[in-house]
Simulated assay, not measured.
Amino acid sequence: MGGVCCKEEEIDFDGEVDLNHFELLRSVGKGAFGKVRVVQHKKDQKIYALKYINKEKCIKMRAVENIIQERRLLEEIDFPLVCNLRFAFQDDENMFMIIDLMLGGDLRFHLDRQGCLKEDMVQFYVAEVALGLHYLHSRKIVHRDLKPDNVLLCEKGHAHLTDFNIAVHYNDKKPLTAVAGSMAYMAPEVLSKKGYFESVDWWSLGVMAFELLFGKRPYRGKTNEALTQAILYDDLVFPENASSHVSKACIECLRGFLTRDVTKRLGCGPTGLQDLKDHAWLKHLDWDHMETKEAIAPFIPDSKRPNFDATHELEELLLEENPLKHKKRATPKPARRRNQRRSA
C-alpha cells in the first residue's frame, strides 16, 4: 500500500489577497519599521517588492499613524516614476504592502559603488525625480524625505521615488510645521520652524544632486546643532575642481535649488516645472519621453549582479528569529453573551 502524499494547500486567487498568493524570494532591504523582500505572484508570475512591518514593533516605536498614513497616500497615487502600491493586507503579526519592484538599486548604492556620478546621469535623475515630485505636489502631497536612498532605479535605469513614510498632504492656507525628514537634506524653512509647503522637496533635490555629483553634501556639521546652523546660514560653496568636473549651467541649477528664498527657488511656484524644463542645464532633455519612461537612460544597472547590499539576505537566513511565512489570521472568538438580569 502506497504512502499518502501531502496535498498542497489550494489557493483562492479570487478571495482576499494574502501572503500565500506570493512566492517569497530574496531579501533586499531593511528600514526602521520593517523589511523588504522580492516576491512573485503565484498566478500571473509578476515580480514585486514586499514591504512588511511588524505590528508589535510598530506600536512600540509609536509609528502606527505613519504606517497607516503611508498606505493611504500610496492608495491615492499612480505615476510611472513612483514605486506604486499594488496590494495591501495583513496577518496577526505583520502589515504587508506589495509595491513595484525596482531591480536597479537605489542611488545611494550606486554612489557608494561608483563614487561621484557623471553629469549626464545626474541630469537625467534630477529631471525624472522632478517629474515625480511635480505629480505629488499636484495632488497636494509633499515627500519630505528625498535623498539618494529613496530614489530607486528600474532595470532600464529610470529613477523612481519611494518611501512615503513621512509624506503628508498639505494645504496652501495652512503651512506644515513639523520638523521631519533626514536632517542633512532638510530645507532651511523646516529647521527654522516658521512653516513650509512643497518647497522643501526642491531644496532636498538640490542637496541630493550636489551629493551625487561631488560625493559630499553642500552643508555639513559634526553635530546636529552645527549642521542646523550650516543649513540656515552658511554660504553655498562648491568644491575647488567643480568647474572642471561639471558645466556652468549645472552649477547655476544647483544654486537655483539651494536658494533659501522659496520665492526664488528653482522648481517652486505655479511655473516651477516649466522653469526647470527651460533651464539651460535641462532644456535639451526629452521630458515627454522621460515621463512615459520611453527615454533612454544614460546608465543601465548591471543585471548580472545584485544592485543592493547582500547582507540583508544573509541576515534573513542566519539571524532572523521569526522567519516570514504565510500564517492564517486567527478567527476572532464570538463574544460571550452577558447574563441577562433577572427581574425581581
Rank of each mutant, 00 (worst) to 15 (best):
H158R: 02
Y170S: 11
M183C: 08
E155T: 11
V142T: 13
H158L: 07
Q123S: 14
Y170F: 15
V126F: 15
E155L: 12
G157E: 11
L153C: 02
V129W: 03
V207M: 08
R113Y: 15
K194F: 00
F210Q: 00
P218G: 09
A180N: 04
S204E: 02
F214L: 10
E119R: 07
H160T: 07
E128K: 08
S138G: 12
D100G: 11
H143Q: 12
S182N: 12
T177M: 14
R220Y: 11
D145C: 01
L161Y: 07
D112P: 00
A187P: 06
V151Y: 05
S204L: 09
A167L: 13
A180H: 00
L133M: 14
S138Q: 13
S182R: 06
G181L: 05
A180M: 13
A178E: 15
L161N: 05
A167P: 07
L152K: 01
K174V: 14
G104R: 04
A209L: 00
D163F: 07
Q114C: 15
H169I: 05
D149Y: 05
R144A: 05
Y185H: 05
R139W: 07
A209M: 06
L152Q: 09
S138M: 10
L107C: 14
H110C: 07
G195S: 10
K174C: 11
F124I: 04
K194D: 04
S204C: 13
V207H: 04
L205V: 12
L152W: 01
M186K: 04
A167G: 10
F109Q: 06
M95T: 06
L136Q: 07
G132L: 06
L103C: 12
E211M: 07
R139M: 14
F124Q: 02
L153E: 01
W202D: 02
Y219S: 00
I98S: 05
W203G: 00
